[in-house]
């Protein structure tokens, strides 16, 4: 069978589907001061998984606000800088009007994912940290 570390090089999704791959990628991103990109990506996926229902409305609102505050509000943050202004204002509107939809971070997540795929993921595959691991 193909060793996991070779599968990590096939696609970003293969890497993010493996706990060891995530850990190594996160260590690399931390060195580059951009681990927030990965945390934000997973936060968006986790948020989408929370089914809207009466018992967790408060939690979803609190979480949407927390994601907005931590990653999007500060325009100088690594995540915020990679998200289009229109996408940011859409999310801001959702939070202010308390229109909490499971898909409200989808566009932002897509933008961050494209940036990872074009930039940090290829760099990771060429990094010492990955090469040493293999």
């Amino acid at each position: 069978p193909t060793p996991p570390y070779l599968r990590w090089a096939e696609s970003l999704h293969s890497l993010l589907d493996d706990q060891d791959g995530i850990n190594l990628f996160r260590t690399f991103l931390k060195q580059e001061n951009c681990a927030d990109l990965l945390d934000f990506w997973f936060a968006c996926s986790g948020f989408r998984k929370l089914e809207p229902c009466d018992s967790n409305e408060e939690k979803r609102l609190k979480l949407a606000k927390a994601i907005y505050k931590k990653y999007i509000l500060d325009n100088n943050g690594i995540v915020s800088r990679q998200i289009k202004p229109a996408t940011k204002s859409f999310i801001k509107d959702c939070v202010i009007k308390q229109l909490i939809d499971p898909a409200m971070f989808d566009q932002a997540q897509t933008e961050i994912q494209s940036m990872i795929e074009e930039n940090t993921y290829p760099l990771f595959l060429k990094s010492d940290i990955y090469l040493e691991y293999t």
């Binding site: 589907d17 493996d18 997973f42 986790g46 609190k62 994601i67 505050k69």
Partner: peptide
């Protein structure tokens, strides 16, 4: 603030694959 961070951390973990 702590509980916000906990909530975020829990959300991030919930999206990660389980250790194989």
């Amino acid at each position: 603030i702590d509980s916000e961070d906990d909530l975020l951390q829990e959300c991030i973990s919930s999206a990660m694959p389980k250790k194989k």
